[in-house]
Amino acid sequence: MDETSARSWVEAEWEDSLDEELEMEIDDLLIAREMKFISDLRHTSNIDRKTYFHELLRLQAELVKLQDWIQHTGEKLVVIFEGRDAAGKGGVIKRITQRLNPRVARVVALPAPTEREKSQWYFQRYVPHLPAAGEMVLFDRSWYNRSGVERVMGFASEEQVEQFFNDVPEFERMLVRSGIRVVKYWFSITDQEQQLRFLMRIHDPLKQWKLSPMDLESRKRWEAYTKAKEETFERTNIPEAPWFIVEGNDKKQARLNCISHLLSMMPYEEIPHEPIHLPDRVFNPDYERKVLPDELYVPEKY
């Protein structure tokens, strides 16, 4: 391959690396055109597209270094993502894990507890998902369900909530003492922004699965969730595992700010790797490749 061909190939690979991110943005634009009453209200990002992609790829390259450092040193990291429904937690988690090894960086998003789990120690169902050495675990909602949705929706009694507030600081201190780093993010959006994002999901068939009855009910209980959030901060913001609020009205800013902050919390450094050399293929002049039947192949429609 000559230099010109090699450059063209690299540029094509670079463009492909952007395509997945673009695909996730295109459906927002399409549905917004069909729903002009929403697009007229929606704000534009303060970050232009070129800057956003440049910074996102730079930060994702740093996340790969962080991953290597965690794996090399045997560190254990827990990152908790909480906040309003449709505040952008999933989008940030997706960008963090997009280029990482899923064996090192795992996402945990637990469903509602079973009847058996309801009878267990509250933290018990979360413990098996905590990281071993060389792993980072991202909790897409966490044990803070108890002081949030469970409290507001009446799934937990005031006695259970009070017990949670008494227990969670010590539980997290135990995690930190055991060598687990705990970082907690709360994603905040305005009332109007949440309403607009819910309307987008209602009218977009590709995103309707994101809406649950709990999400819709949360609209009616905005103030109750606000009070629950304020008490959660007041009683669980401990030095060993403090809360950090991510302003989420601008999705692009929220993604970059959160990833940048997470990286700043870790004392990681680049881990040197042995040079990788692609071995030459071994050719056997006596080998004859078999012709496989056509029905084994996926039809080439595109």
Rank of each mutant, 00 (worst) to 15 (best):
R201M: 06
P299Q: 00
L130A: 01
R116F: 05
N284V: 02
P111E: 03
E295T: 02
I189A: 01
W222H: 11
E230A: 10
E20R: 13
W186P: 05
A86H: 04
R289N: 06
P272L: 00
K252C: 02
E230G: 01
D19W: 14
T226R: 13
M200F: 15
D19E: 15
Q253A: 12
W143A: 03
Q163P: 10
K76Y: 05
G90E: 00
G90A: 04
L100K: 11
L110P: 05
L41D: 09
L211R: 00
H277C: 11
I80F: 02
L22E: 10
G88H: 02
I202Y: 02
L211M: 10
P293F: 00
V78I: 13
S17A: 14
Q60H: 08
E230Q: 14
V127D: 01
R42K: 14
S188L: 07
E162I: 08
H261Q: 12
Q194K: 11
Q98N: 11
W209K: 07
K210A: 04
D28G: 11
Y302D: 15
L175T: 09
F123N: 01
D294M: 11
H277V: 13
R173T: 07
I93M: 10
R99L: 08
E274Y: 07
K36C: 08
E223G: 05
R289H: 08
Y185I: 02
D167I: 01
Q195T: 15
Y144L: 04
G134T: 00
L29F: 09
R116I: 05
V10P: 00
V161K: 03
I271K: 07
Q163E: 13
G248D: 05
V183T: 12
K207T: 10
V78N: 04
E150A: 09
I189P: 09
H203Y: 15
E295F: 09
R58F: 10
F187G: 04
V104F: 04
S264A: 12
R116Q: 12
P111K: 06
I70K: 02
N249F: 07
I80D: 03
N237L: 04
E34T: 07
G91M: 00
P239A: 03
E159D: 14
F198E: 07
I238Q: 05
D250A: 04
H261N: 10
Q194P: 14
A32C: 06
F233G: 06
T236N: 08
D280T: 09
Y302G: 15
R197T: 04
